[in-house]
Write a protein that binds this DNA or RNA. Sequence first.
DNA 1: GAATCGGAAGAAATCGTTTACAATGGATTT
DNA 2: AAATCCATTGTAAACGATTTCTTCCGATTC
Lengths: 341, 341
Amino acid sequence: MHKNVTMKDIAKIAGVSTATVSLALAGDPRVNVKTRRQVEEIARRLKYVPNEIGRSLRARKAETIALIFPNTPHNAFSHPYFVQLLEGITEVVVRHSFHLLVSTSPTESDEAASYDKILRNRRADGIILWPSSIRDDNIGRIVESGFPVVYLGKWHRGDVLTVERDDFGGAYMATEHLIRRGRRRIAHITGPLDFQVSIERLEGYKKALSDHGMPYDPDLVIEADFTMESGHDAVVRMQKAGLKYDAVFAGNDRMAIGAMKALQSFGRRIPDDVAVVGCDNIEMATMTNPALTTIHQPMREIGAIAAEKLIRTLTGRPVEPRQTVVPAELVVRESCGGTDR
Amino acid sequence: MHKNVTMKDIAKIAGVSTATVSLALAGDPRVNVKTRRQVEEIARRLKYVPNEIGRSLRARKAETIALIFPNTPHNAFSHPYFVQLLEGITEVVVRHSFHLLVSTSPTESDEAASYDKILRNRRADGIILWPSSIRDDNIGRIVESGFPVVYLGKWHRGDVLTVERDDFGGAYMATEHLIRRGRRRIAHITGPLDFQVSIERLEGYKKALSDHGMPYDPDLVIEADFTMESGHDAVVRMQKAGLKYDAVFAGNDRMAIGAMKALQSFGRRIPDDVAVVGCDNIEMATMTNPALTTIHQPMREIGAIAAEKLIRTLTGRPVEPRQTVVPAELVVRESCGGTDR
DNA sequence: GAATCGGAAGAAATCGTTTACAATGGATTT
DNA sequence: AAATCCATTGTAAACGATTTCTTCCGATTC
């Protein structure tokens, strides 16, 4: 492990000052072409790699963005799409020769301190914020502080860069799909209603119903908690309540799969007796029997767009539009039967 | 966004030098308790947060570790356990107030350059290396360069910190489980045999057979490619070849699930006619019908141990043992039937 | 021939810390 | 009373780049 070569080393060999070396390597036109060539040559020969820490300190930037998320239950790690999001982000980060810092906060109250530290430190030049489930004024403070931030979700106050899934639109598509396939009594199993995503999907469901002139029956809306078991239970509850329905739209795939199991255990055939649609398009959805029709959220693309937006602002380029809603896609498989009428 | 407060600001107010401030905040016993208290008080009042970039430059360390993995097909992002690994790592990283840099290399040949850059830069003080599928002498050079590295896998030459899954042991357990349940003709669907993991699992399978005095029949070993479809095809091929078998041990859960589907399509009942065991314990394994018995690899723990080892060496503490093999666990569900005899 | 100009490169400050070393002054030792 | 020591604190040199001045020198201008 030999000593690193610095600009000083290059300067000495080339017989110039470090200032000239710096300028030369940056391709600054102020330095003579011949000198620049020579410096470049020496740098190559010595396998010079610039020390980014030194550069960061002086230039007050780190060529780094941070992905920050809370460490609450139902956090990013348990989100079926976290990996895709991360993949989209790293892809762009690497392409721009940036670095990615992954940061989570042990407790809710440490969150703000943590953001703050990373940014004030200049450890990262900007952050991508994964919303925490709990309304957090601390996040608000960061978002509005003027630090470069891309928020993954809907931000109501002020002009903030955001990228969000279209939960509302996805639910709308799912519900509409069921309606088109002739279903008339569509139940909806929601996630916990203190999650924004659950509310959005419920609203999309309602809107699709009303746009198609169908009544909204609150009895057909059951709140569950995102787990397969809770989806199972939801169907059991509906069964016990003696409700009639010919379709189920679940707020995520896990619950949809739980619901399918319960339905089948009650002897109801899918899709003949009951059609089922999920949300998220997790891998499992391809493997159920019948394969689950679902709503795909392009999280990889969301990650890529978010990173791209952030890096664009950091490099002083304009970003348009400032808010992006990435459309969901309906993935038709076997759990809804037939074709549109 | 006001100017950040630095040690100089504190020094001026406290009427001492920045050296004293630095020492005081570091809790160095050389500075008078009264002075230290005062400095601490001022720092608190000014909401001073140390600039870690400046610190990094001088102290030649970044309080950061990097997780590095190749960007090849079948890379970390498509690994069912990447998230758990990451979760284990971040948990430990946060606990020690370190940072985590996530880095992937666009091409195989950029890999070495990338590691090198991160380390020479002191962007990170050490790295956790996710092995690339392809034998890579560049990785070898890094691992042996003396930089702090934890390698996630088996490293043959030299004394390197490693944490690895027990692929051999897991396969052994799976096979033994089938034997104990009375199965006599156990097929094995492997992953691509240029992956170390596939070889390990094949060896574990063979060893279990021979330890129980059962013959090894090469016809019963089919190479597939980790996908569900390939597992399906493997069964189809065996069926066409007219092979007799009463159990399948698949090199991962996806292939096991594909195999189950194919078996059921041939009218073979699981577990009555054929028992099935997978590997990995992905979430999907809980949802199949019957639920899949499988081998759980505690990747979260592996991540945590790896991070712990790395940070221990970085902070100059001894780490024992230098090589860790984290045992696999058999998760018994419904796809193997009965109880041990 | 003096003044001006402009291209090129060097000197030095700077970013915010850490740290080796020196300095101060009062107490203790001999 | 001189020498020594200890506890504190200050000075200044790093760390490795970037960037703002200067400076230098030869060429052009009046």
